[in-house]
Amino acid sequence: MNYTVLLSQMLQATLMSLRIFFSTLLFSVPLGLLVAAGRRSKVKAVNLPVRFYILLMRGTPLMLQLLFIFYGLKPLTGIQLDRVAAAQVAFLLNYAAYFAEIFRGGIDAVPAGQYEAARVLGFTKRQTFFRIVLPQVCKMILPPMSNEFINLVKDTSLAQVIGVTELLRVTSDWVSSAVSMAPFAIAAVFYLLMNAVVTRCFTVAEARMNYYR
């Protein structure tokens, strides 16, 4: 087994995992905010479809969603995404649903008195949300968000079911061809390192938000 080749291929694959990780975060956080807003809407025509979307995303396996978007979209809509794009879309839709529920919980946890104080002072709804509510929500949702971020690092390995050459796919190919367990151990270290960084970022963020309450 040539370790130089192994490591370089595994690093290459890690970059693919990271690409899915970051693209998911970049799009599913804002989409999650929108979905949370829709979920909180009192208008049934908005609220009901959003609830159905959240149920669908959280109630079916992410692996099935990946397979559906890669193989199932074409017959239905004629759109064929390439493997990586299909993975990115599936992850983004799935994680937005989870994030939305976390955001919703955070927004609902801001006491009514905060809205009332802002209102009496004359802040507009928009100002109230961005200046008063959102900063408090950010602090509250850090712990559940760190869980989701860590899950996402590991979930990127699911993209292999539609043939994306991410870290775990390359690893298991090496294990079967070289008949060695070493690649598994190396992959475990890679995932651990990525999640150590994620954990560290959240620890720092929590410490920085710790100046109040």
Binding site: P111, L121, G122, F123, I132, R213
Partner: peptide, 20 residues
């Protein structure tokens, strides 16, 4: 109902700045 994430000064100055 003070804003917990703002300092005392900012609690007082925020509305005059952004509303007035």
């Amino acid at each position: 109902n003070l804003f917990p994430h703002f300092s005392v000064l900012r609690n007082i100055a925020e509305a005059p700045m952004h509303v007035l």
